[in-house]
Lab assay of single mutants.
Amino acid sequence: AEEIWQQSVIGDYLARFKNDRVKALKAMEMTWNNMEKKEKLMWIKKAAED
C-alpha cells in the first residue's frame, strides 16, 4: 500500500524538492508515518484490488 501511495505522490514530492530524490523520499516516509489509519486504509484497499 505504501508503494502505491508513493508512486502516486512521488512527482509532487520531487517537484517540491527540486528533484532531490533523497529529501523527497525522506519527506514521503515521514508523511506516510504521520498519516491517519483511515487515510492509509484507502491505499491498502487500492493495493488489494491490484
Rank of each mutant, 00 (worst) to 15 (best):
K38R: 10
A1L: 02
M42W: 15
E29M: 12
N33E: 12
K18M: 14
A27V: 06
L41R: 05
E39D: 10
A15Y: 08
A15W: 07
E49D: 12
E3H: 11
E2D: 05
N33G: 06
N19C: 14
D20S: 04
M35R: 00
K18V: 06
K26L: 09
I10W: 11
V9H: 05
K46G: 04
K23W: 03
E39S: 03
M35K: 02
L25Y: 13
K23A: 15
V9Y: 04
E29F: 05
L25D: 04
K46T: 08
W32V: 00
K40V: 04
D12C: 11
D50G: 06
K26M: 10
A15F: 09
K18S: 14
E29K: 10
A48F: 12
E36D: 15
D50P: 08
N19W: 07
K26W: 07
W5D: 00
D12H: 09
N19A: 06
T31S: 09
Q6T: 10
E2M: 14
E2I: 12
W32A: 00
K23F: 04
Q6A: 13
E29W: 09
Q6L: 07
K37R: 14
Y13P: 01
K46L: 13
R16I: 14
Q6H: 09
T31R: 12
V22W: 07
G11E: 10
A48K: 06
L14G: 00
W5P: 00
A47E: 07
K45A: 15
N33L: 12
W32P: 00
K45T: 12
N34A: 13
E49Y: 07
V22C: 12
Y13D: 00
N19L: 03
D12F: 08
I4A: 10
M35V: 02
E49T: 07
N33H: 09
W32D: 00
K45C: 10
M35S: 01
E36G: 13
A15M: 13
N19S: 11
T31N: 08
E3A: 11
I44W: 04
V9N: 04
T31C: 08
R21H: 14
D12N: 08
K26D: 08
W32G: 00
M30Y: 10
K40M: 04
G11H: 15
K46H: 07
A15Q: 12
R16Q: 13
I4Q: 09
G11M: 15
A27H: 11
I10D: 01
Y13K: 00
A1Q: 03
A15L: 12
K26S: 08
E39A: 04
L41W: 10
L14Q: 02
I4P: 01
Q6D: 02
R21T: 07
A48H: 08
N33C: 12
V22I: 12
A24G: 01
M30H: 13
E49G: 12
A47M: 09
G11Y: 12
K40H: 04
A48Y: 11
W5S: 01
M30T: 12
Q7R: 14
D20K: 01
L25K: 07
